[in-house]
Computed example of a mutant assay.
Amino acid sequence: MKFTATTRDVQGTSASRRLRRAGRVPAIVYGGNAEPTVISLDHNQIFHDLRKEAFHASILNMDLDGKVESVLLRAVQWHPYKPLVLHVDFQRVVASQALTTKVPLNFINGDLSPAVKLHGQVISHVLTELEITCLPADLPVNIQVDLGALDANANLHLDAISMPAGVQYAGNEENPLLAAALPVGGGSAGAEEGDGAEGEESAE
Rank of each mutant, 00 (worst) to 15 (best):
L73N: 07
Q144I: 05
T7Y: 11
D9W: 15
P114G: 02
V25W: 02
P83W: 15
A75N: 14
V184H: 01
F3D: 11
H125F: 05
A197Y: 04
D9A: 13
T6E: 13
V141K: 14
A75D: 12
D138A: 14
S14R: 13
G166T: 02
V71C: 10
L130E: 00
S58T: 12
G110Q: 14
T4K: 10
K67D: 03
A115G: 08
A154R: 07
D111G: 14
E131Y: 04
V116L: 12
N175A: 01
V93N: 03
I161D: 00
A34C: 11
R24W: 11
Q97I: 05
G12F: 08
A75P: 12
L41N: 15
L19T: 02
Q77A: 14
V10A: 15
E53M: 10
A203W: 02
R20S: 04
E174F: 00
L150E: 00
V126P: 01
E198F: 03
I59S: 09
V116G: 06
K52Y: 14
S70C: 10
V94W: 09
T100L: 13
L73T: 04
G185P: 05
T101A: 13
A98W: 13
K117T: 01
F3A: 14
A197H: 09
L178E: 01
P176H: 02
D49R: 09
S162H: 13
